[in-house]
Amino acid sequence: MPDPFKFELVSPEKLLFSGDVEQVLVPGAEGDMTIMAKHAPLITTLRPGLLEIDFPGGKRQRFFAQGGFAEVIPAGLTVLAETAIDLDEMDPSELAQSIKNAEEDVADLSGEAKDKAQMTLEHLRQVQSALGA
């Protein structure tokens, strides 16, 4: 059984979670990463994706996270997300609207901005696929 560590998930509106966890899957800009106790310190930006929290005892909670960053320090992990929605509370129409907005961005933009919008669109579609929506 992995050692528990301190984790906080914060959105602009409120503190969504603060407590001990066994591991957290973070949708980092360079790819997904699993953070466990005693992980090396790091800071990464977030891409749209699933943030999965594993608790002692086997419980798992999943959030859709978009924007922001994650910081690992010896005391634990903090994720500051621009958007963080508990998937148990997520309205599929919200995700569909985010995908529609990203499709419009891809159609309207050019150059590096279009490339970034295309990556966001692909990540949102991956989340939609993972949810079976």
Rank of each mutant, 00 (worst) to 15 (best):
K100G: 11
G68S: 03
M33R: 15
E8V: 12
A133K: 04
P4Y: 01
T34K: 13
T83D: 11
R60E: 13
P27F: 13
S110T: 08
E71Q: 11
S110A: 06
E13G: 10
M90Q: 07
E112Q: 13
E8T: 11
F69A: 07
D88L: 14
A65C: 14
K100P: 12
F5R: 04
A117Y: 08
T34D: 06
T78M: 11
E94N: 09
I35V: 15
I35M: 11
S93C: 06
A102V: 00
G57E: 04
D86R: 09
D32T: 10
D32P: 03
K6E: 14
D32E: 10
Q23I: 01
E22R: 06
I85W: 00
L50E: 02
T34E: 12
L87N: 09
A75T: 15
E71F: 05
R60K: 14
L46P: 03
V21A: 11
K114R: 07
I35G: 06
G58K: 02
V79G: 12
T34A: 14
Q23T: 05
F17Q: 07
G68H: 03
H123R: 12
E22T: 14
V24K: 00
Q23V: 02
M33E: 11
G58H: 04
F64G: 04
L15T: 15
P41D: 10
D108S: 13
E8F: 08
E8M: 08
L16S: 12
P74M: 00
E112S: 08
L15P: 09
L16R: 14
E30H: 06
S11T: 09
G132Y: 00
R62Y: 04
T78Y: 00
P92S: 07
L51C: 13
F69K: 14
A37W: 04
D20R: 07
L121E: 01
V127I: 10
L124W: 05
D32W: 09
E30A: 03
Q126T: 09
Q66M: 12
V79Y: 11
L16M: 14
L77G: 05
G31E: 03
D91F: 02
V106I: 07
M1H: 15
R125Q: 14
P41H: 14
Q97I: 13
E104S: 15
L131C: 06
G49M: 04
F5C: 00
P4H: 00
F64P: 03
A130V: 04
E112M: 10
F7W: 05
D88N: 12
M36I: 14
A29F: 11
L109V: 07
L51F: 02
E89S: 14
L77N: 05
T45M: 02
K38Y: 03
A65F: 10
V26I: 14
M36R: 14
I43Q: 10
Q128W: 05
A96W: 08
A81T: 03
D20L: 12
T120P: 01
